[in-house]
Design a binder for these strands. Structure first.
Lengths: 351, 351
DNA sequence: TTGTACGCGTTATCAA
DNA sequence: TTGATAACGCGTACAA
């Protein structure tokens, strides 16, 4: 491996000049520059990023702390981060959280070991003490799908999204709306992926929200249960005219039962899934979801903004849910204006 | 941020002693050690990983070059890598390949910038020149789901897997086997995820392989096409008694059509999907697949082995496909012995 | 315009 | 058992 000294020797100049050429600093005679450039190419010289970090105090790495589960939500968000990071020329280091101990360890220790220039935390909420510590050591941190008063955070207005989809349905004349979901998961490691159920509970009792209690099934963890739930909802005389399911799997059952019962979708029955998915795409299922890719992109872009201006004070940002209309609803999308704008940070090379 | 000098000053010792205490080197009087330890805690001293890298020439980072698509295959493999990396105490840096230019750039330049201690390349085949260059600069590299004569490689015996599943079916008395797949994808960026089709073609013409040509449908890219294909296969008088589908989506259609035609699964029809999947799980679909998690784990473990012994010469490793029997086949698993053993590298902290 | 010496924070060597 | 000092490779004042 050639060092800067080798280049200087070969080019017959001082190392300072080589450095200047490498960093495109002004004040180098063209002749000298070319001479040096030639030596650089000849020796295939690449500056050592570690030695460089020694001076600049930056690694060019951005840490991602995320519950790296099989869940498509995390996968999609991380993919959004990847996209933005590639564009911005920095690398992502994955810190995979599998349990609370690991999470706490990352939160308390990672900021101390300065192995990354900044941190994007996904769907995990650091304790106030940890969050403050991160600020104090001057490590830029951004939260995605989580909130801390001490750190810039991005949250999605889930309740709002649920309200909107229900209101859209009401506007279309629907009066009986069914709901099929997995038993609510109370996970201590990461934040609940969504509080759609809370959103529904919130609407509950509102006068114009005429979903019947019996239409709310919360147990549907396997195929048989899902099918039973769908059948239960659709075979009653006063059956719902719209069904929202927590997963595309459950939607499969609803669609099958509807077909068996000769209920036309979307004419006689609207079906809406949660979260974007390969299966939703395949099924032609209309879905409502968090803008996952965009959230990921926002995360790294906003982190870069924080790295460029460390004094920047933490702020709360919100995204709306989005709606993808396919073939299981009609004209529902029109009442949705997709708008999850965020400050567009300038592109910046992190080297 | 406290440095080693601050600690030395506070403890009233030389920096050498502090270093010795930090690295648990022997030859430090207990009294001195405690004095130093006290100073370390008081100043919350953490050694700077960058300065440390300067000496050790290691970063503690492991690079992953992968086509980071939404495909579950890559996701699962990377997850396996994550699991192993966490266990081994090293961090994963994601290098996301989105196009051929980026791929080539990573292959040629990444080994030069010594930002990672080693590289696991997934489903991408570096050119011989690049592979040799990697060896020459002494960067440990391991290929997963790809092969190069110059690098340790892990491949899955796909043809073999297909043969085995077909043979298992033949043993069970099946004589007409259907096949539904997407049009073959010829992707220039990453290796074809599987060459199952090749596997079939390979069996083609063998006397005991009595799948009929008309049973082979290769076009089924959307729901309607898939359903049409399934109907085409199952409605003929001499219908197949077993169907293999390239994706779980297509299996959905087969199962629905079978139900509509009152063909009992698995009694009158065996259905086998490719690749493990949430949907397969939900559907109770029996599947054949590459051992994705294990491949990922093998990748980082084997890379560690190479890092510990840089002289190690490249070798080719093979994994068998695995079979997950669920509710769409019967007793097919018994002829499958799952065996994808690999050398168990010793656990090693990379710090 | 260019060369030199110093410092970044650590580990390793060697003399005390 | 310990402390001083020399690397590691680069950027950058500062002197020439």
């Amino acid at each position: 491996m050639a060092t800067i000294r080798d280049v200087a020797r070969l080019a017959g100049v001082g190392i300072g000049t080589v450095s200047r050429v490498m960093n495109q600093s002004p004040g180098v005679k063209t002749a000298t520059r070319e001479k040096v450039q030639h030596a650089i190419e000849q020796l295939k010289y690449k500056p050592d990023p570690i030695a460089r970090s020694m001076i600049s105090r930056r690694t060019g790495f951005m840490g991602i702390i995320a519950p790296f589960t099989t869940r498509s939500f995390f996968r999609e968000v991380v993919q959004g981060m990847e996209r933005a990071a590639t564009l911005l020329g920095c690398q992502l280091v994955l810190y995979n959280v599998q349990n609370t101990a690991q999470r706490d360890h990352y939160f308390s220790d990672l900021p101390m070991y300065r192995k990354v220039d900044g941190l994007v935390i996904l769907s995990l909420t650091p304790k106030d003490a940890d969050a403050q510590a991160m600020r104090e050591v001057g490590l830029p941190v951004v939260l995605v799908d989580a909130y801390s008063p001490f750190l810039s955070s991005l949250v999605v207005k889930t309740k709002d999204g649920v309200s909107r989809v229900v209101n859209s349905l009401l506007e279309q004349g629907h009066r009986r709306i069914g709901w099929i979901a997995d038993p609510r998961e109370e996970d201590t490691v990461w934040n609940k992926p969504n509080d759609v159920f809370q959103g529904l509970q919130h609407l509950w009792g509102r006068e114009d929200f005429m979903v019947e209690p019996e239409c709310l099934l919360t147990e549907a963890q396997n195929r048989e249960e899902g099918r039973k739930a769908a059948f239960h909802l659709l075979s009653r005389p006063e059956r719902p005219t719209a069904i929202v399911t927590a997963s595309a799997f459950q939607a499969i059952e609803v669609l099958e039962v509807a077909q068996a019962l000769d209920i036309k979708v979307p004419d006689a029955l609207s079906v809406i899934g949660l979260h974007e998915d390969d299966i939703a795409e395949w099924l032609g299922l209309s879905t409502i979801q968090s803008p996952m890719r965009e959230m990921g992109e926002w995360g790294v872009r906003h982190l870069v903004a924080h790295m460029e201006n460390p004094a920047r004070s933490p702020a709360l940002f919100t995204f709306e849910m989005t709606f993808a209309e396919r073939r299981t609803t009609t004209q529902l999308a029109k009442s949705w204006k997709v708008s999850h704008h965020y400050e567009d940070t300038e592109r910046k090379r992190v080297s």
